[in-house]
């Protein structure tokens, strides 16, 4: 049993999942399963949103990985999940598992940025209709949502503070919506804003927070809940500023 390599594979799997936005309990479960499949019967795993700890046995030294950047990439979560599945079934050796995990770690996003922006724009328009908007507000919501989502990506790229990026993005959405109503292309400013803001809503964080709390991961659940609350607050503040200006 190669303790060093098992530890490396487990930490790599956990790191990829944590950076891609998996639930904490799924990360711990996956790492434990991998370790167990390679013969580490008593592996100890602890994951929080900002760090990952792994010991191959209770008395062995603990290994630690710091997670600085987190994004949402459910494609990678699925891939790591299927790798852990084939490890459990005994279809992958330790070295093969390490190679394929490294490949996944290097992979780019499943969709190019422009596809994501188009998807966000379309979703914004649809949300405007779902919240009892008129079809005249569809196009303004599509454009406002697209601009807002691109702004969020751009600001997050230049300033590394996510809440600030979200604040600026929703501020821009509010201004664009106001502009459309002013030139009488859009009817209701409220519906346009609600639709366009939806792609910024921290849906995955909320879902993960609840699932983690239910699974007994109180630290992760609470910190994810705090993160989603801050995001929602940033969006609300951005829109509120628009109301103060106009």
């Amino acid at each position: 049993m190669d303790k060093q390599l098992i530890t490396k594979v487990c930490l790599l799997a956990g790191k990829v999942m944590l950076q891609s936005g998996a639930e904490t309990y799924r990360i711990e479960d996956t790492m434990w399963r991998i370790a167990h499949a390679f013969g580490a019967e008593n592996a100890q795993v602890h994951a929080t949103p900002t760090g990952l700890m792994f010991a191959i046995n209770e008395t062995e030294p603990t290994n630690f990985v710091r997670i600085l950047e987190r994004s949402t990439d459910l494609h990678k979560v699925t891939e790591v999940n299927s790798i852990s599945r084939s490890i459990s079934n005994g279809n992958l050796t330790l070295e093969e598992a390490r190679e394929s995990l490294k490949e996944i770690d290097q992979e780019k996003l499943a969709y190019p940025r422009y596809v994501q922006i188009i998807a966000a724009a379309l979703a914004s328009g649809c949300f405007a209709i779902m919240f009892q908007g008129q079809w005249t507000d569809f196009l303004p919501a599509v454009i406002a949502g697209g601009i807002g989502f691109s702004a969020m990506i751009y600001f997050h790229y230049i300033v590394k503070i996510r809440f600030f990026a979200e604040f600026l993005a929703s501020l821009i959405i509010g201004l664009v919506a106001f502009f459309f109503v002013r030139i009488e292309v859009g009817l209701e400013m409220d519906r346009i804003i609600i639709g366009a803001v939806m792609p910024l809503v921290p849906g995955l964080l909320i879902t993960n927070a609840v699932r983690d709390l239910m699974a007994g991961h109180l630290v992760s659940g609470l910190s994810k809940g705090a993160e989603s609350f801050l995001t929602a607050f940033a969006i609300g503040a951005g829109i509120a500023v628009v109301f103060f200006i106009v």
């Binding site: 949402t72 459910l74 994501q116 966000a120």
Partner: peptide, 9 residues
Amino acid sequence: GFAIIFNAP
């Protein structure tokens, strides 16, 4: 659209 934003397979 949301699935695409979250990079679902």
